[in-house]
Simulated scan of single mutants.
Amino acid sequence: MPSSLHERLYRADLTSFTKLAFYELSPQHELGTTWHIDVMADALEGCLNRGATRLILNAPPRSLKSHCATVAMVVFALGRDPTRKIIVVAGTRTLAAELQRRVVTLMRTPRCRVLFPHLRPTVTPGEIILPHGGGILYRAVGQSLIGRGADLIVIDDPIAPHRAQDEGARGFVHAWYDAEIVPRLNDKAGGAIVLVMQRVHEDDLTAYVRKRGVWTEVLLPAVALKNEAWRLHRRRTVMRQKGEPLLPDREGKDTLIAVLREIGAYNFWAQYLQQPSKALGLERVGWFCAPRPFDSQSGMPIVGAFRKVREIDAILFEVFGVGQPPPYASQAPYSDAEWEARAIIQQQRLLAEAQADRHRHEA
């Protein structure tokens, strides 16, 4: 394919440009599996030219979500329209500075300069300004954005996992979002907000914004929890089967199991499987049916017993197919009232058995 056709592709297709940007910034690394990049880039491109205005990307650590959204996309967006104003907000000032450094580095690579020769950035701490009037403002969560407007706002990992356990810290992020983000859009109806993060708590910013509007969501767990079908706008469908790792080249099944054992069930459910509400403790209390007693003259119903199962063991079986199934794995979930009713039945059965034993001894 002639180089001019390659250049036309990179200028027109965010997915192709995102992969090119990776090799420009990390020539010593292999990109490996890329279908998830296709999915993320396709959704991000919808915010640039298909009218999508609210997008959530949830994916595990080190899955290139920041590269896609806060590096490649913003350079591509300014390459297509150098008058566009963008705000990038990161969880920390250090991360914001690193994202700015990577964007400037990409803009100044020879290949990017050939593709978008008009990207001649003037760089100051926290800001990139282009001759055509567009640019990128970099801030950390908590910093004021007053007086600044944007056509596109990208929020990248707004809170660290350890801070997300603090209700006050989460509330601070939520209040900052309400006060600082939506008011900064130049076009409240057409401006786009992209939230890029790993899940860190069941009441994190992803959960908060879901309750307050309609968002397009791309949720990519480290292991598929069900069969997935991603229909891209160019009439291509990407499939992933249940149990298939997201990054088999770098984080296959054995590696992810090792991560699970090291960081624990709660962090794994949240950061790697994007399901922070699933693991609320170290153990699950399960109910499994017991066989009817041989002597059922008392009229007691068929009941069961409670049993504790380590949450890690439950994940190993349910997600990775490793180990023995929990005894209640096939049972439907119960409400709190149903749990209480079954506990009462169990107590009644134990009492009836104790009384029967006492009567036999007395006889």
Rank of each mutant, 00 (worst) to 15 (best):
residue 67 H to Q: 05
residue 170 R to N: 03
residue 167 E to F: 03
residue 51 G to D: 05
residue 337 A to Q: 15
residue 206 T to C: 12
residue 350 L to E: 10
residue 238 V to C: 07
residue 332 A to S: 09
residue 126 G to D: 03
residue 322 V to Y: 10
residue 136 I to F: 02
residue 264 G to Y: 00
residue 288 F to M: 09
residue 5 L to I: 11
residue 77 A to L: 01
residue 237 T to R: 13
residue 265 A to G: 01
residue 264 G to P: 11
residue 283 E to L: 14
residue 138 Y to I: 15
residue 87 I to A: 01
residue 130 L to Y: 04
residue 172 F to R: 14
residue 359 H to P: 04
residue 94 T to S: 13
residue 52 A to F: 07
residue 242 K to E: 05
residue 114 V to S: 15
residue 351 L to Q: 13
residue 179 A to V: 06
residue 300 M to P: 02
residue 59 A to G: 08
residue 210 R to A: 09
residue 212 R to E: 09
residue 333 P to Q: 11
residue 176 W to F: 03
residue 183 P to E: 06
residue 138 Y to S: 14
residue 354 A to Q: 06
residue 99 L to H: 07
residue 345 I to Y: 05
residue 41 A to M: 06
residue 90 A to F: 01
residue 69 A to Y: 04
residue 188 K to R: 08
residue 283 E to F: 15
residue 37 I to E: 07
residue 127 E to P: 02
residue 237 T to P: 08
residue 99 L to K: 08
residue 327 P to C: 00
residue 10 Y to L: 15
residue 5 L to E: 12
residue 312 I to E: 08
residue 154 V to R: 00
residue 251 E to G: 06
residue 300 M to D: 00
residue 222 A to E: 02
residue 348 Q to V: 04
residue 362 E to H: 13
residue 137 L to S: 07
residue 13 D to E: 12
residue 299 G to K: 05
